[in-house]
Write a protein that binds this DNA or RNA. Structure first.
Length: 406
RNA sequence: GGAGAGGUGGCGGAGUGGUCGAACGCGCUUGAUUCGAAAUCAAGAGUCCUUUCACGAGGACCGUGGGUUCAAAUCCCACCCUCUCCUCCA
């Protein structure tokens, strides 16, 4: 465990935790021994007459035991409270198939799809295309909200909405996911359940007591929090479209131009609750479900497997889907698909009864299917024509009602 | 926002200070009966934690957190949630 944690390029000191755990056991033993004694002695009370000397003597003894008990309980409580904050900061263990590596440079190519055709002219980026047609307005969004916001107007707004419906339709009708529209604000318990808290608080927008969701993964996974499923004969599959809200703290100066990294963006998210023995098969299927969208939209992409140094905090295994962006002459992440194994289930208390009747933690998975804003960027850029117009991919036309922009 | 009612095991629902981890019903598991099923009869079964190689032993848990008491599902306080009525509202 210590080795695997280190492979993630995370420094975590296990020694204090081990000491606390030892202290915790001792405190529990002390407390429970006294409690057992106290309960046995207390049974004698009801046989005695109130006011008799025996009654008063025993009562005094018991009073003294109760006081000691309270002190021991308090001691136990303090120790027990110190443990979870430490535990919650340990990242998940990576699956054995995940290669050890230091950074994104050590990720590996799983497969790629679609041909990267040279456009035959210098490609505009999506910001230039959007401004040319008056359908993306970053400048006014800056005045109304601030940096990292955007107004979509006219055909861009319609394209965004079309993409959402297109993705939801495929996942519900063809891939068998249940459509969910969850709350966009959740409490701290829910955020802890999926692992955003306590470690990533600075990435979240917060109101009085509630947080704005950074991804639908949070409310949708927590749909099953504190649940003991009587059985889990097959994997539960859910899909949710939501806006997502992120502070993007620590990414100052990165992707400041355009729609790539916004404080608010739309995403269609896939979430699965699976029996442990099926979860890795389900991860592959989930990746394929997300790939379907890119294929139907005729966008070139590749699937990358993340190494231990680049994988997310709670994931045991993770694939990124990256779409081709001509203006940047590179692939950019458009989906991230992870198996969390029991990492989130332990926090959110999501259990099921296995065939032997024992309650055990389920595995949770999720992945973008896809990030809508980045998909819009990919379409604008990949389907642009020499005159600056944009052709709408065939699959999307029934949704947009138009076949070109400009 | 105002008034009232209520939160108990998978579900329904008793329980107002010790004999309550909790009656009863439904549901569930196993056995008997049956060719099989239904019905009936019998038995069993909560979760978490500590300890033990194991059998077992012990502790905690009746919305959450405090308090009173030798002793709390039961009494007191705060909070959260649900339902009904009124008010308001997209």
């Amino acid at each position: 465990m210590k080795t695997k944690t280190a492979q993630r390029q995370v420094a975590f000191d296990f020694a204090p935790l081990e000491q606390l755990e030892e202290a915790r056991r001792r405190a529990i033993r002390d407390y429970e021994t006294l409690r057992a004694e106290q309960k046995r002695a207390s049974d004698g009370m009801k046989a005695l007459k109130p006011g008799s000397p025996e009654f008063d003597t025993l009562r005094a003894t018991l009073k003294e035991m109760a006081d000691r008990g309270k002190a021991l309980e308090e001691e136990k409580r303090i120790i027990e409270e110190a443990i979870p904050p430490l535990l919650l900061r340990i990242p998940n263990l990576c699956h054995d198939s995940v290669p050890v590596g230091e950074s994104a440079d050590d990720n590996y190519l799983v497969r790629s799809h679609g041909e990267i055709k040279p456009l035959g002219f210098a490609p505009l980026d999506h910001v230039a295309i959007g401004e040319k047609h008056g359908i993306l307005d970053f400048e006014q969004a800056g005045r109304v909200s601030g940096a990292r916001f955007c107004f979509l107007r006219g055909q861009a707004a319609r394209l965004e909405r079309s993409l959402i419906n297109f993705m939801l339709d495929i996942h519900t009708r063809e891939h068998g996911y249940e459509e969910i529209f969850p709350p966009l604000m959740v409490n701290a318990d829910a955020m802890t359940g999926t692992g955003q808290l306590p470690k990533f608080e600075e990435d979240l927008f917060k109101t009085d007591n509630l947080y704005l969701i950074p991804t639908a993964e949070v409310p949708v996974t927590n749909l099953y929090r504190d649940t003991l499923l009587e059985s889990l004969p097959s994997t539960l599959k859910m899909v949710a479209y939501t806006p997502c809200f992120r502070r993007e703290a620590g990414s100052h100066g990165r992707d400041t131009r355009g729609l790539i990294r916004q404080h608010q963006f739309n995403k269609v998210e896939l979430v699965k609750i699976a029996p442990p023995e099926e979860s890795y098969d389900e991860l592959e299927k989930l990746v394929n479900d997300a790939c379907t969208i890119l294929q139907r939209l005729e966008l070139p992409y590749r699937v990358m497997g993340l190494c231990t140094g680049d994988i997310g905090f709670g994931a045991a295994k993770c694939y990124d889907l990256e779409v081709w962006l001509p203006s940047q002459n590179t692939f950019r992440e458009i989906s991230s698909c992870s198996n969390f194994e029991a990492f989130q289930a332990r926090r959110a208390n999501i259990r099921f009864r296995d065939s032997s009747g024992k309650a055990q933690f389920a595995h949770t998975l999720n992945g973008s299917g896809l990030a809508v804003g980045r998909t819009l960027v990919a379409i604008l850029e990949n389907f642009q024509n020499a005159d600056g117009s944009v052709t709408i991919p065939d699959a999307l036309r029934p949704y947009t009602g138009f076949d070109r922009i400009g």
